[in-house]
Amino acid sequence: MSADSAIETELNREIPAEGAEAASAAALDRAAAEGLVDVAYTVADTPIGGLLLASTERGLVCVSFHDLSGDAALEQIADRVSPRVVELPRKLDAARFELDEFFAGRRRSFEVALDWTLIDGFRRHVLQRLAAEVGYGEVASYGELATVVGKPRAARAVGTAMATNPLPIFVPCHRVVRSGGAIGNYGGGVERKRFLLDLEGASRNH
């Protein structure tokens, strides 16, 4: 074998990357300690599937059904909040703990701080009133919620607010149903909405 080809063969031989993952995790921990992580996320396992939980320094900023939106939710966060989006499960420990309790039937309201960055204007107002007014096990119709926010004719706009809720479950848009009692739509699918209402023991005829 000539010297040239021996050298090139060696230079082209792939170097193992076995240490990269651990070094990566260590680097992200350091980066978080230095305040360089704007959004931390994890995917939590729940009885209704994987939930992507993302949080800023201010609080939980996005919850999404991982099987439906996948990484699109992270791309939206990168675009609208900050591209410094990093997987750091321990930053979501509190939210995950509350979710576990909720799904075990031991929690009726959430205490983690919420960051409303991803929604503003009328929609944010509607969602904030929903979170404050419609408690565990209760339901309200789109029209009733429209009345609560002082716009009784805005049932359709209320529906849009529910559809664009960036914090489902924590902001309980699953508690908003059709005025006739029909279950209505849900971003995570009607099956999940039914599961959540049953979990809460909401009286219903849907």
Partner: peptide, 10 residues
Amino acid sequence: MTLPPFQVAL
């Protein structure tokens, strides 16, 4: 064009 989440780039 928007930047991907840093985690994706990483």
